[in-house]
């Protein structure tokens, strides 16, 4: 069975022919497009390591069939930096030591970008922790992660205001 789809991945339109409808977005990114920044942790939607943005919303790419996302716009960790400059969430994760082994970090960062775009948590640490509960960190860098998300939110808010001014 030959199943053609189109996806825009980190701004680049891609035409992909799937030979099997079972391929998830996670496996497509890692195995077909060589974008291995997105990690496969549990592969069952429980750990959040595979978090990506689909049409601007954070989702678990392990529980998304590529075939049913024909036409979608995908952003992965590889698509965040602009012109060699880290995204504010990436910079904040480094500044706050928000990781140890780093395996969950791409998923944490993509989830944080999604959370900030949703605009529901603000800078309330409890709302940030609740909003990030779909991302597990076995090294337990949660404190740094929460601080990084709050700082990135503040940085991005200021940048937004400057652009608007």
């Amino acid at each position: 069975m030959s199943l053609p789809i189109t996806l825009t991945v980190n701004g680049v339109p891609q035409r992909i022919v799937l030979d099997d409808p079972r391929v998830t977005l996670l496996d497509l990114l890692r195995e077909r497009l060589d974008l291995t920044g997105t990690k496969k942790g549990c592969d069952r939607g429980q750990c959040g390591a595979c978090t990506i943005l689909v049409d601007g919303r954070r989702v678990n790419s392990c529980l998304a069939l590529a075939i049913s996302h024909d036409g979608a716009e995908i952003t992965t960790i590889e698509g965040l930096a602009r012109d060699g400059e880290l995204h504010p969430v990436q910079a904040a994760f480094i500044a706050h030591d928000a990781f140890q082994c780093g395996f969950c970090t791409p998923g944490q960062i993509m989830s944080a970008v999604g959370l900030i775009a949703e605009g529901q948590a603000g800078t309330d640490p409890e709302r940030v922790r609740e909003g990030m509960s779909g991302n597990l960190c076995r090294c337990a860098a949660y404190r740094g992660i929460t601080e990084a998300v709050i700082e990135a939110q503040e940085t991005m808010g200021q940048a937004g205001r400057q652009e608007a001014a």
Partner: peptide, 9 residues
């Protein structure tokens, strides 16, 4: 219910 990622989907 669930996580933010799952609720988005």
């Amino acid at each position: 219910g669930a996580s933010a990622q799952l609720r988005n989907a």
